[in-house]
Design a protein around this nucleic acid. Structure first.
Length: 449
RNA sequence: GGGGGUUUGCCCGAGUGGUUAAAGGGGGCGGACUGUAAAUCCGCUGGCUAUGCCUACACAGGUUCGAAUCCUGUAGCCCCCA
C-alpha cells in the first residue's frame, strides 16, 4: 500500500507528458499547444513557475505548481522555481498600511531559505547529493537581477515594449479598474516585472516555457509578448486550473488558516487529516492535480468512491500520498498512529512518549504536583486551564452535556477532581471535549504554571 | 437648519412598565445518527464553587414599589423638507 513517491520512479517519456497533463485536467490554457508539443519532443526544455516568498513556508496552495514542475522534471526537463524577491518587495499596495507589505532583505532571505528547503521534497536540485541527471532544478530569485536595474533603463528596455492599450485589455487589469479598490501604478507595473522575468530566464537559461495557475494567464502572456518584442523568440505558456473546492473556495484553507508544509506550522497529523477530510466531490480532482497516482489506480479509486463513498478509500490514499511526499515515512507513520488514537478511543497502555508525540500539536497546560495533591484539581477548573472551556459555566455545561472525557473516558460528575491516580503512571492527562477537541495536562516539577 | 424614524444578546430579529438573562431564526458548542461526511433530530448558548448573587437591551441621567419598555440629554444610522 505504501508507495514512496520517489523521483527515480519510471518516468513518463517526453511524448507522454502532455497526455498525462491532459488526463489529469491540468491543461487549462496553452498559448500554442501544437508548438509546445513539438518543442517538448525536440529535446529537454526548461520551464519556470514563480512563487511568492511571503513566508518561511509554502502552503497547500503552492503544491499544484510544485507538482507541475516535478512532472516536467520527471519527464526529463529542467524546472526553475523562481521566487519573487523583487516582486515580493513591492507587494500588494492596498493603500493605507505601507509598512506591512515591505519585506526586508533579511526576511526575504529567511523566506527563500525556508521555501527552498521544502522544495527539495518535490524537486531535485542541481548539485544535490545523489542526483545524476542533467536536468537539476534551479532556484532563482528575481531580486538578483532586478535590484541593479535602474528605473530609466527599465523604462527604455521594457516599458517601451508595453502598449498600454493591450494592458488595459487584460482581464486582470480591467477587473481591478472596475472594482472599488482600483489599481495603483505599482500594481499596474507588476506585470512588467513578471514579464521581464520570463525574458531574462529565456536569455540566461534558455527557458522558453512558463507555467502557473490560471490567474497568471495575463502575466504569462505579457511575458510572451515582451519576449517576442525584445528577442524575437517564441515563448510558451500554459496554465493549470485553480484548485478550488466544489463550492468554489480555495483549497488549503481551514478555520485555523492555511495548511502549511512546514511541520512546525501544520503538524504531519493535521496535514494528513486535512486530506482525509476532503469532500467526496473534490477528492478525485485533488488526486489528479496533486499526486502521481497513475491512471489505473485513479480509475479504481474513482469507482470505489462512487460505489462505497463511506470507505473513503480515495481520501485515505490521497492523504497518504501527500503526507509521505511532504513529511516522509516518519511523518506518515506518526500521522496514522495519531489518527488511530485520536479516533479509536482507548488509550490502553500507550506509553508516555507516544502520547506526547501523538498530542504534540494539541494545546497543553502545565500543572504542578501540589495542584493534584489533596482534593485535587476540580474538573471545571482543569477544563478552563486547558483552554477547552472559556468559563466555569461553559465547563459545567459541557460536563452536563456528556462531552467531556478524561483519558478518553467520559466524565459525568461535575464535581470530579483530577488527582494523582488519574495520571495512570504517565506524566500527562488527555482531556477531550466533544469528538475532536483535545488538550493535555502536563505534570511538571516545581511551582504551578 | 427643520421634521420623522431607528439603535436589543456573536449576527438577524420580536418584545412597549411586572418571573424578561429577554420569543423566533442564524451561527457556535455538544449529543444521537453516520463515513472523522452531508442531511436530519435533540440539548445548550452572559458571569460567578450558584436553590442564590452580579452584569446586560447605544451612552448618561430621571419618573416609578418595579423599566429593554415612560421622560430628558448625548452619540450612531435612516428617511423627508430646506
Amino acid at each position: 500500500m505504501t508507495q514512496s513517491p520517489e523521483l527515480n520512479d519510471a518516468s513518463p517519456s517526453t511524448d507522454d507528458l502532455l497526455n498525462e497533463l491532459r488526463w489529469r485536467g491540468l491543461l487549462h490554457q496553452i498559448t500554442d499547444e501544437e508548438g509546445l508539443g513539438k518543442l517538448l519532443s525536440s529535446g529537454p526544455q526548461t520551464i519556470y513557475i514563480g512563487f511568492d516568498p511571503t513566508a518561511t513556508s509554502l502552503h497547500v496552495g503552492s503544491m499544484m505548481q510544485l507538482m507541475m514542475l516535478r512532472r516536467f522534471q520527471r519527464a526529463g526537463h529542467r524546472p526553475i522555481a523562481l521566487v519573487g524577491g523583487a516582486t515580493g518587495m513591492i507587494g500588494d499596495p492596498s493603500g493605507k498600511s505601507e509598512e506591512r507589505n515591505l519585506l526586508s532583505a533579511e526576511q526575504l532571505q529567511l523566506n527563500v531559505d525556508g521555501v527552498a528547503a521544502q522544495m527539495r521534497r518535490f524537486l531535485q536540485f542541481e548539485g544535490e547529493d545523489g542526483f545524476e541527471g542533467k536536468n537539476g532544478a534551479l532556484l532563482l530569485n528575481n531580486f538578483d537581477w532586478m535590484q541593479g536595474y535602474s528605473y530609466l533603463e527599465f523604462l527604455r528596455d521594457v516599458g517601451k515594449n508595453f502598449p498600454v492599450g493591450t494592458m488595459m485589455g487584460k482581464e486582470s487589469v480591467r477587473s481591478r479598474l472596475n472594482s472599488e479598490a482600483g489599481l495603483s501604478y505599482t500594481e499596474f507595473s507588476y506585470m512588467l516585472l513578471q514579464a521581464y522575468d520570463f525574458v531574462h530566464l529565456s536569455r540566461e537559461h534558455g527557458c522558453r516555457i512558463q507555467a502557473g495557475g490560471s490567474d497568471q494567464w495575463g502575466n504569462i502572456t505579457a511575458g510572451i509578448d515582451l519576449g517576442r518584442r525584445m528577442t524575437g523568440q517564441q515563448l510558451f505558456g500554459l496554465t493549470a486550473p485553480l484548485l478550488t473546492t466544489s463550492d468554489g473556495k480555495k483549497m488549503g484553507k481551514t478555520e485555523n488558516g492555511a495548511v502549511w508544509l512546514d511541520p512546525e506550522r501544520t503538524s504531519p497529523y493535521a496535514f494528513y487529516q486535512y486530506w482525509v477530510n476532503v469532500a467526496d466531490d473534490d477528492v478525485m480532482r485533488c488526486i489528479a492535480y496533486l499526486t502521481e497516482i497513475e491512471k489505473d489506480e485513479y480509475d479504481e479509486l474513482a469507482e470505489r468512491t462512487e460505489q462505497s463513498a463511506g470507505e473513503r478509500a480515495a481520501q485515505k490514499r490521497l492523504a497518504q500520498w501527500m503526507t509521505t511526499l511532504v513529511h516522509g515515512e516518519e511523518g506518515i507513520e506518526s500521522a496514522q498512529r495519531a489518527t488511530q488514537i485520536l479516533f479509536g478511543g482507548e488509550l490502553g497502555n500507550t506509553t508516555d512518549d507516544q502520547l506526547r508525540e501523538i498530542f504534540a500539536d494539541v494545546p497543553s497546560c502545565d500543572i504542578s504536583q501540589d495542584q493534584i495533591d489533596g482534593d485535587g484539581l476540580w474538573i471545571v477548573e482543569a477544563l478552563q486551564l486547558a483552554g477547552l472551556c472559556s468559563s466555569g459555566g461553559e465547563a459545567r455545561r459541557s460536563v452536563k452535556e456528556n462531552s467531556i472525557y478524561l483519558n478518553n473516558c467520559r466524565v459525568t460528575d461535575e464535581q470530579k477532581r483530577v488527582v494523582g491516580s488519574d495520571f495512570d503512571g504517565r506524566s500527562v492527562i488527555v482531556l477531550r471535549r466533544g469528538k475532536r477537541k483535545y488538550a493535555l495536562l502536563k505534570l511538571v516539577a516545581g511551582a504551578a504554571n
